[in-house]
Write a protein that binds this DNA or RNA. Structure first.
Lengths: 83, 83
DNA sequence: ATACTATATACGATTTAAGGTATATATCGT
DNA sequence: ACGATATATACCTTAAATCGTATATAGTAT
């Protein structure tokens, strides 16, 4: 399953889904990557203003990778973005 | 063409390739997203410590999108990572 | 070689994310 | 409803990213 993100909020939602799927709590994930539970929370809620390093730490911990590519055909906007 | 990144350095290289492909200079891109040429340079050289907001600004300006997905089969490590 | 453009680097000032700690909600199971 | 666990928020401090500006280096073309 692949998840598209075009902003911090969307990426946060993706990170949350992936973390839950992995069965980790924010506290556990935070412990793994050496950050606070509050920091994980901030990133997942897309509190605009997050560091790329933390994102990569999370991706690595969850065994995910990031792909950059041209916007997909439909150029569909995520539903949550409309409001 | 899709580009995989697992850390800031790799992503920086990706951003640079995409920017060049788009024909923009760092100065032009910086002007578009409202950041300094030096900031673009930092991000492209992967000066570890970059904000996610800036990354998304760049992706949007270059009409790219970010995808998060499970690590690809081979789990191959980028060549540049070995040293 | 010279001018011109592009990119990297520098330094002090300012903004902002993350830390430490604590608490308030919210969610879940019984 | 209750306790237990998970997540969100708060406040102040510390660390770090961006800015403004400027310059140095690298790359390109004539």
């Amino acid at each position: 399953m692949e998840h598209i993100s075009r902003n911090g909020k969307q990426l946060g939602a993706v990170l949350r889904r992936c973390r839950k799927q992995s069965g980790h709590t924010q506290t556990q994930l935070g412990a793994i990557i050496g950050k606070r539970q509050a920091t994980i929370s901030d990133h997942e809620t897309g509190q605009s203003g997050m560091s790329l390093d933390t994102v990569f730490s999370i991706l690595n911990a969850l065994e995910l990778e990031m792909v950059v590519r041209p916007r997909s055909k439909g150029d569909v906007r995520s539903f949550g973005d409309l409001f």
